[in-house]
Design a binder for these strands. Structure first.
Lengths: 164, 164
DNA sequence: ATACTTGCAAACGGTTTGCAATTTA
DNA sequence: TAAATTGCAAACCGTTTGCAAGTAT
């Protein structure tokens, strides 16, 4: 999906989350720990509903209610562990922010795939524009819509071996 | 607010809209005409609710229901007359697409102001990234969040030098 | 004890839609 | 007169929230 590689992090997501919660007078409960672990178990993009499903499929009985998931997502975002990247179908989509390099996305309108990319010139451009407008940037979201290489490929000769 | 200037257009928005509606087997009703006119009476960004308000304030009795406004917004978007640019407060924000040059936005998180800007290097960058990924771009949305010059300005007196 | 947290169900809010009445070609 | 359109109110749907019961310090 992407060749972006995680950068080395000194502290685990759980620890980082506990740290943040402490500063807010909150606690790292077992529910919150279950959520952080599940969230950082894979690098895929996800929305609230997908996360709830993953948590409900657990066999260890560590289910967490939908409300708690929503509350935790907000906290994970505030703590800098997650960031919201897009809203393709009116659902907020999240990805890892902590321990993962900053990047943007090509979004295929056909298959919905998110392709990550980085390009330094974007940051140069943003700095320049910010300076020109006396604007202090805190974040940005660049969504590039179109058709991915796979979907551009002519379908005439589709591999029928994919069918089972 | 912005020094982007409208480009010359051969056909009026109403005509363009009628043209599009025809191709869909639809009609340019008085309600739809009222809406297009109101929408293109000013270049400001707006959301559905603001448009409804503007239409309700009319003294000529040309009121249009909320549903019709929502339906027309979708049609105006499909026809290429409008485009959705941001979603600051969970409300879709629209702007003129037809007869207005392509640009992006700085979005002030404090006052909600949208500042338009253009920078050619963005397009160069997008072309490069698209080529690298075999991606065919159809559109993009760049939202830059932060604090505008106005909101950065201190409300109270701020000392420029550290006087001890 | 006090403060934080959870799960449930109800509320929220922007947007969409079913439908009967109305308008248009 | 058949097809499109409107306005109303209800539905929709992801998300948020009030609250009572539970848990940690």
């Amino acid at each position: 999906m992407s060749d972006l590689t995680a950068v080395d992090v000194a502290v685990s997501p759980e620890a980082k989350f506990r740290e943040y919660l402490m500063t807010q007078g909150m606690r790292l409960t077992t529910e919150r720990e279950t959520i952080v672990r599940e969230v950082f178990a894979s690098h895929e993009h996800f929305d609230a509903d997908q996360l709830v499903s993953r948590l409900n499929q657990r066999t260890d009985g560590k289910r967490v209610s939908r409300s708690t998931v929503y509350r935790a997502l907000a906290q994970l975002k505030d703590s800098g562990l997650l960031r919201a990247v897009a809203r393709p179908n009116d659902r907020e989509v999240y990805e890892h922010d902590y321990g993962y390099p900053q990047h943007d996305h090509l979004i295929c309108k056909e298959c919905g795939d998110l392709i990550e990319f980085v390009d330094d010139s974007l940051n140069e451009m943003l700095s320049r524009v910010a300076a020109q407008n006396g604007f202090r940037i805190s974040a940005h979201r660049l969504e590039v819509y179109g058709k991915c290489a796979n979907c551009c490929r002519p379908k005439r000769r589709q591999r029928k071996t994919d069918m089972i």
